[in-house]
Write a protein that binds this DNA or RNA. Structure first.
Lengths: 349, 349
DNA sequence: CACCAAAATGACAACGTTGTCATTTACGTA
DNA sequence: TACGTAAATGACAACGTTGTCATTTTGGTG
């Protein structure tokens, strides 16, 4: 592999002039620049990033820690929305900024990431982004001098983090149902021990109250855990009870798409048509699920890609403007949006 | 960020002794080693990879070019099996060998990867793996001095490459059907302009011949393109014609899982039960598809993860034993295996 | 032509580590 | 205790580039 000295000798200039050409500095004559560029091309010279890094302290690398690749080949329906969508969002922002992403993938369920941090720091990455596989609180990682952001997880109010706004997302679902004329709602959600489960339930309850729905009109149940297939019999019992009562709901908000998908055949077996007899709405917009449901599922997006993009842009901004402080406390919450398909009917009332 | 000089000063030794401790060289006294390690821990010293790289010409990085991340969030059913499974296999082998993977993701359909190669070479990666999103022939990339492997694509017989053995995979499917007593088969496959489409069709025909099936017993049709949803009406017509004839097939080999999945409701609408009236078998073992079919689809795996793993191990072997030559011509073909579920019935005849 | 200022070019030190070889220390044996 | 050898430690050059400042070249003006 050729060095800057080889190029300088072939072009008949100093190594500094070669450096100026390669780095597109202005103060080089056109004829000189052309002569050097020809030598670069002929020798297929690639600058040595290690040497650059020693001199200029800019690696041009952004470190990314994720378990998305290890987990992406699990059963897509059971696994929930893959955090690789977050990776994609991060990647887009880095590509636009001309930064190279150094992705380190952890084993699933691996919580000690210090070894990964050490690798990234030895490569002198300019910043680190750690993507969690589901929304939760973690202890703050200890990293000096290098900007560090969490995505899909959070720590202290001073630690940079971006999370999905599960609360607002579920509110949007309720607002959509109410707007479509629904006034008797049920919520079948995730376990409240889960961050997302708790926030989505709270969002549902608050939105129902804000819409003036009384306790008679609103029924909530929960208990399903992320990552587990909803046992058919459990969901079946829940739905049976909902429809054995006098004030049957006209619409059901599910805590995620998987529950909504599993509910479809159960509701059919109860003699209910969707959306004519009961409307349903999911959460996540998981294409592995919604692309297969009949009728096509109306749902709320889990804005993973946007979260990744926002995080990377914030980090990059932090790098280019080191004195700018984040005004708001963390985490930054990103709200999804309703994707209207065919599982919600408009009522005339 | 502290340097080796800071550690040496704190521990009261030379920088070379610090280097010996950090690199776990043997010739250091235990007491000295402990003193140095304490200083390393106290200062949170991380070796500077750029400096190491300049001195030792070993980056410990393996470069990977793929479009898997950009494409993974497309509709999983339409996209075909994601090449991220290949990435996972590469990752496993690199992790075991203690190498860090530098993943560069291209835009979908981007064919000029020279810019990505340049980035990787400037980081002095020890080897490069280029993953193609589907099995095809490409022009040989020009890279000097650095080992370069293709996965899911191939070039000249001297260019290192690993591809799926589509031919053998489809043979396995036929052999399984024959073993289950089926003697009247149909093949509904991918377009033969596609590498996989051509090889799978050839594999089907050859396996049927080898099994002694006559032309009367075997019917082939093809024309579907990878990446496009099979138009329902086209597939419907194909299947109708198959079952309007006197010698109806007892089993259908599909060129991929997506076609098999789409065929299920059509066969039902023709009054055919699966597998009682007609057995079906897919190809790819795409969990985004097979996890949702009823009955559960018997299929042949597209061994992406294994291909990735084999490639990385070959590359790593090339790095540790540079004089070893690959005995066989390229590409190396990796055969999948039959995954038995419920869509193939055993006939008594 | 002489002078001045701006543009272009070059010399060389420094970045943080490892490889090489010289020097010092410790241990075992006679 | 002296000697020899092996183990441990240290000095310093080199890796390939960029930053800094000195030097040279060029162009314009009087």
């Amino acid at each position: 592999m050729s060095t800057i000295h080889d190029v300088a000798k072939l072009a008949g200039v100093s190594i500094k002039t070669v450096s100026r050409v390669v780095n597109q500095e202005p103060s080089v004559r056109d004829a000189t620049r052309e002569r050097v560029q020809n030598a670069v091309d002929k020798l297929q010279y690639k600058p040595h990033n290690g040497a650059r890094l020693m001199r200029s302290s800019k690696s041009n690398l952004i470190g990314l820690i994720t378990s998305a690749i290890s987990t992406v080949s699990r059963d897509p329906v059971k696994a929930g929305l893959s955090s690789i969508h977050i990776v994609k969002g991060v990647q887009q922002a880095c590509r636009e900024a001309g930064k190279t992403l150094l992705i380190l993938d952890t084993e699933p369920d691996e919580t000690d990431i210090q070894h990964h941090i050490d690798i990234l720091l030895s490569h002198r990455v300019e910043g680190i982004i750690y993507i969690l596989d589901h929304h939760r609180l973690i202890a703050p990682p200890v990293v000096q001098d290098t900007p560090f952001w969490l995505v899909n997880g959070y720590s202290t109010p001073s630690f940079p983090a971006v999370v999905p706004n599960d609360y607002m997302g579920q509110q949007l679902a309720v607002e959509h149902l109410v707007e479509q004329g629904h006034s008797r709602l049920a919520y079948v959600g995730l376990a409240v021990e889960l961050e997302a489960g708790r926030l989505r339930r709270e969002g549902f309850i608050n939105a129902a109250e804000s819409a003036g729905l009384t306790n008679e009109d609103v029924q909530t149940t929960y208990g399903m855990k992320l990552g587990e297939t909803t046992p058919f019999s459990v969901l079946e019992n829940v739905l049976k009870q909902l429809f054995e009562q006098q004030n049957r709901p006209t619409a059901i908000c599910f805590g995620n798409d998987q529950m909504a998908m599993n509910a479809i055949p159960i509701l059919h077996s109860l003699g209910l048509r969707i959306p004519e007899d009961v409307s349903i709405i999911g959460f996540d917009n998981d294409m592995a699920i919604v692309s297969g449901t009949r009728p096509a599922l109306t749902t709320v997006t889990l804005p993973y890609q946007r979260m990744g993009n926002i995080t990377a842009k914030k980090l990059l901004q932090q790098l280019s403007e080191p004195d700018q402080e984040q005004a708001e406390p963390y985490p930054i919450k990103v709200t999804g949006e309703v994707v209207i398909r065919q599982s919600v009917e408009k009522l005339n009332n």
